[in-house]
């Protein structure tokens, strides 16, 4: 883990969940090639925690190669037509 402590609450002292999500955030930005400054990590960790307060391991799951976005869109369009 690198950088300052991260908290998923407004507590600046850090916590285990915040630190773990913070590490995942840093890793994700590194993988994507997007610059990230240290001050952004805590707000991003809190935003992710608000979006899905699930186990931190979730935040480190790899991409699913088998996911078919076009099929998902087609399925949803069909559902819309079915309910028209």
């Amino acid at each position: 883990m690198s950088g300052h402590p991260v908290s998923v609450s407004d507590d600046a002292t850090g916590d285990a969940t915040g630190d773990a999500i913070g590490a995942a955030v840093r890793a994700a930005f590194r993988r994507a090639g997007v610059p990230l400054c240290d001050a952004e990590v805590a707000p991003l960790a809190r935003a992710l925690h608000r979006l899905q307060p699930s186990p931190v391991s979730d935040a480190r799951q790899p991409m699913r190669d088998t996911f078919d976005a076009a099929q998902a869109a087609a399925d949803f369009a069909a559902a819309l037509r079915r309910h028209a």
């Binding site: 995942a24 994700a28 930005f29 997007v34 998902a72 069909a78 559902a79």
Partner: peptide, 19 residues
């Protein structure tokens, strides 16, 4: 920026569940 850090499985689950 949240989208950069957001794990793909969360996004895929939201799409999967939509219909």
């Amino acid at each position: 920026t949240p989208g950069v850090a957001l794990p793909e499985p969360w996004y895929h689950a939201a799409l999967d569940e939509r219909p």
